[in-house]
Design a protein around this nucleic acid. Structure first.
Length: 443
DNA sequence: TCTGGGGTCCTTCGGCGC
DNA sequence: TCTGGCGCCGAAGGACCC
């Protein structure tokens, strides 16, 4: 494809507003209009998403949950329900695909759409307004949209449009839009790069544009420097490309308290490896490289890898490699986090068949995960605030908290009025943990 | 006040073959 | 035979994003 730079604003970027928190407020009527924090609820949790009400107090994504709670004592703190978010995400992406088949999903709540070839190239703003309204009607969620000639401008426009807005930046208006923005707004410029640019006195995109190419490459590296040099000039020929292949899968776990000792660590490696294997199996195919990641009590982190002669999908072989890699990290100190990931993925599984190898032992099957579609009794151990529950006669609701056999819950869902919280004795009124029920109907 | 979990991409370095 | 340069690959670390 000859990538001829476009002349019209036909790249659309759509991004759901405080997605996780908005889904929770939608599904839990008593939380609407109230501060909500979604994220890890344990002692070492961090905030994934803060609702707009919670942001008023200074709570932010990536902030330690302990700090966010202190800033926002009134907030509901909820454990993420990824199944529910995925269902809403699929509905949003399906609506976006009505605009064009060229949809590049960036994350669970964000996508680019290329309107150039479709019927909407002449009036992207009208198409965007219509799709925002349909998504709102179907899911109750606000999706902010930016439209521009390039991915960079579309993305920055959707940021500027938040919350619940639509901004189209016409090509003649690009410089007026881009130049005053802080460099930190540019995707790819994080804290480290911004600090390096600050040393050049480059704080805005306009400042960045004044930097010679060689200064930028010396400051932030060859690739990033050339990239920034172009982006600062609005040069961004990246096409909207659907179909990106996954390059790695893995799992990692930060322990509520540091663990130490051979046995505890070995058990933990097995558990994390099982989860990573489960995801590899779900992805399909095998992997050639296994990476173990270890974070010690002082937060220093290191990785060690083992590369196999050929890609493998055999749990025993991958598990052995994971242990070998973790061992190479020298697990003597207190360990805060363990991770296992698989790289150099190969599309199709290379399971060594039993007759290929005399020494194959009893097949160590990947344990089936706890089937998320299967209801289980609610207990103090498996309770997490925010999870869906069901009572035989009182119906569906969600967990506020569980202490011993006393469960505090609210019986409410998308289309019920807000409910007061009530306390049930689980021995008298058993509750089932159930998968989220996502009813998507135009309203 | 104490730092998650899922990823992607880039840089640097050392080993190796030519 | 020794040395240097180049390109490739794997390993490790780090920055960044949502």
């Amino acid at each position: 494809m000859a990538d001829r730079t476009r002349t019209r604003a036909t790249v659309l970027h759509a991004d759901a507003d405080s997605f996780f928190a908005a889904v929770e407020q939608r599904d839990k009527p008593s939380l609407r209009g109230r501060p909500v924090l979604v994220g890890g609820t344990g002692p070492r949790g961090v905030v994934s998403t803060a609702s707009y009400e919670a942001r008023l107090t200074g709570a932010r994504s990536a902030m330690p949950m302990s700090r966010a709670r202190r800033l926002t004592p009134a907030a509901a703190v909820l454990y993420p329900r990824f199944e529910a978010y995925s269902a809403y995400s699929r509905a949003i992406m399906a609506e976006l695909r009505t605009l064009s088949p060229l949809v590049e999903q960036l994350s669970i709540d964000e996508a680019f759409v290329d309107l150039q070839e479709g019927p909407f190239a002449d009036d992207p703003a009208a198409a965007a307004a219509a799709v925002r309204a349909r998504i709102r009607s179907l899911t109750g969620l606000a999706v902010s949209v930016g439209i521009g000639r390039t991915k960079l401008v579309a993305k920055l426009a959707s940021d500027a449009a938040k919350p619940d807005g639509l901004l189209l930046v016409e090509p003649p208006d690009e410089d007026a839009f881009l130049l005053p923005l802080p460099v930190r707004a540019v995707p790819g410029i994080g804290p480290a790069t911004a600090a390096a640019l600050e040393r050049l006195d480059a704080r805005t995109v306009a400042d960045l544009r004044r930097q010679p190419l060689d200064v930028l490459t010396m400051t932030v590296g060859e690739s990033s420097g050339a990239n920034l040099y172009r982006l600062a000039r609005g040069i961004d020929p990246r096409p909207v490309s659907p179909g990106a292949e996954r390059k790695s899968v893995g799992a990692e776990r930060t322990f509520a308290a540091d663990i130490f000792g051979r046995d505890a660590i070995s058990t933990a490696i097995d558990a994390v490896t099982d989860e990573a294997l489960r995801r590899l199996t779900a992805h399909g195919g095998g992997a050639r490289t296994v990476v173990a990641k270890v974070r010690f009590a002082d937060f220093t982190t290191l990785t060690r890898s083992v590369t196999l002669p050929q890609p493998s999908a055999e749990p025993a072989e991958l598990r052995a490699a994971a242990h070998q890699a973790a061992l190479a990290a020298g697990l003597t100190d207190s360990v805060r986090l363990l991770g296992v990931s698989f790289h150099n993925l190969s599309a199709h599984a290379q399971l060594t068949l039993p007759w290929d190898d005399d020494e194959v032992q009893a097949e160590p099957l990947v344990l089936p995960p706890e089937d998320p579609t299967q209801a289980r009794p609610l207990t103090e151990e498996n309770a997490r605030p925010g999870l869906d529950i069901e009572h035989a006669t009182l119906g569906r609701g969600w967990v506020v908290h569980v202490r011993g056999r006393a469960a505090t819950v609210r019986f409410e869902s998308v289309d019920t009025p807000p409910a007061r919280s009530q306390v049930l004795d689980l021995d008298v009124d058993p509750l089932l943990l159930v998968p989220p029920l996502v009813a998507l109907e135009p309203s």
